[in-house]
C-alpha cells in the first residue's frame, strides 16, 4: 500500500508541475465558466422570448401560452459537451505516456527492482490520476455552483446539489475510462506517439463518428410555433439510432448527464433516486470499461515482456 500511495503522490505532484497539463486544466475551467454563462444567457433569452410572446398574446386577447419550465441546473448543460471533448483529452494526456515514459526513461527497471509488487505501480498510477481528475472535477463543481448561485441568485437545493454530485461522479467514471485506456495502450505499445495516436482515434470515434452516425438515424418531427412564426425540428430516437448509440460511451454519457442536469423536460422532474434506477444500465456501461481496462493493465504488468 505504501508503494501505491508513493506512486500516486508522485503522479499528482508531477501532473501539476506539467505546463501542458495545466494549460488544458485552465481551458477546462474556462470552458466551464463559459458553459454556465451560455446556459444562463440562454435561460434568460428564453424567458424574454416567452414574456414577449405572452405580452403579444395578452394584447391580442388570445390565450397566453404556458410559461416554459426552465430548470436551474440546465444552465450547466454545456458541461456535458466539454467533458466529452476536453475532459477526455485531459485524461488521455494524463495517461498516454504514463507507462512507456517510465520504460523509455529507464525508471521502470528501477521501480521493478524495489520491494513493491508490480501491480502497485499500476494501482499507484490509477490512484494518482484519479486524484488529479477528482480534484479537477471537484474544483469545477465548486466553480460552477458559485457561478450558478451568481447567475440564478439562489443556492441550489439539496436535490439539485445531489444531482450535480452524481453528474460529476459519472463524469469522473467517463474520464477515467479514457485514462485507463491510455494507460493500457501505454503498457502495450513501445512508442508514446503511437499510444497517443491510437487514443486520439478512439476519442474521435467515440466522441464524434458514432454520435453523428446515431444522429443520422433519428427520425424528425417538426413543431410549428404560429405566434413566433418558427419551425423547430424535434429529433426522435429510433431503434437503430439507439443501438448505434450504445457503441459510444459519449452518447450514453450525454444521455445520463442531460437527465441529471435537468435539460430534458421528460426526466427533469423525476426524483433522483428513481432516475438513477432508470439509468442504472447506462451508468454501469459508463463505469465498466474503466474497470475492465484497469484489470487488464494489472494483468499485463505482471508479464515479463512488459520491460
Amino acid at each position: 500500500m505504501t508503494g501505491v500511495k508513493l506512486i500516486a503522490g508522485k503522479k499528482l505532484r508531477a501532473s501539476f508541475r506539467n505546463m501542458e497539463f495545466l494549460l488544458i486544466v485552465g481551458v477546462f475551467l474556462l470552458m466551464s465558466i463559459v458553459s454556465v454563462y451560455i446556459g444562463s444567457t440562454t435561460k434568460n433569452a428564453e424567458m424574454r422570448a416567452y414574456e414577449s410572446i405572452a405580452s403579444s398574446a395578452a394584447n391580442a386577447g388570445t390565450e397566453i401560452p404556458a410559461a416554459p419550465v426552465i430548470y436551474s441546473l440546465a444552465i450547466l448543460k454545456n458541461l456535458v459537451e466539454y467533458i466529452v471533448m476536453i475532459g477526455a483529452i485531459l485524461a488521455i494526456f494524463l495517461g498516454y505516456d504514463v507507462f512507456q515514459g517510465e520504460r523509455q526513461g529507464g525508471t521502470l527497471r528501477l521501480l521493478f527492482t524495489k520491494p513493491i509488487p508490480r501491480r502497485s505501480i499500476i494501482l499507484g498510477k490509477l490512484l494518482g490520476a484519479g486524484l488529479v481528475i477528482g480534484l479537477l472535477l471537484t474544483v469545477t463543481l465548486f466553480f460552477n455552483m458559485a457561478l450558478f448561485a451568481y447567475y440564478t441568485g439562489v443556492l441550489p437545493n439539496f436535490e439539485e446539489t445531489l444531482r450535480v454530485i452524481v453528474f460529476l461522479g459519472i463524469a469522473f467514471a467517463y474520464m477515467m475510462n479514457f485514462y485507463t485506456a491510455a494507460l493500457y495502450i501505454s503498457i502495450k505499445t513501445r512508442e508514446s506517439s503511437y499510444g497517443f495516436l491510437i487514443m486520439m482515434v478512439v476519442w474521435i470515434f467515440i466522441s464524434f463518428v458514432v454520435p453523428q452516425i446515431a444522429e443520422s438515424q433519428k427520425s424528425y418531427a417538426y413543431a410549428i410555433n404560429n405566434i413566433a412564426g418558427t419551425i423547430t425540428q424535434v429529433p426522435g430516437e429510433t431503434a437503430l439510432s439507439n443501438a448505434i448509440g450504445w457503441l459510444s460511451p459519449a452518447v450514453q454519457f450525454k444521455f445520463v448527464g442531460s437527465d441529471l442536469l435537468q435539460t430534458v423536460s421528460e426526466t427533469a422532474t423525476i426524483p433522483l433516486g428513481r432516475l438513477l434506477v432508470a439509468e442504472i444500465v447506462k451508468m454501469i456501461y459508463l463505469i465498466l470499461p474503466g474497470i475492465v481496462l484497469a484489470l487488464l493493465s494489472l494483468r499485463e504488468v505482471e508479464k515479463e515482456g512488459t520491460l
Binding site: A14, R17, G105, G106, T107, R109, L110, T113, K114, P115, I116, P117
Partner: peptide, 20 residues
C-alpha cells in the same frame, strides 16, 4: 522476490531518473 528486492540495489545501464 519481494524480500530479495529489499536486500538488493540495482543500477541499469543509462539510467535517466526523473529529470524534472
Amino acid at each position: 522476490n519481494l524480500k530479495v528486492r529489499g536486500i538488493l540495489g540495482y543500477l541499469p545501464e543509462n539510467v535517466s531518473l526523473y529529470g524534472d
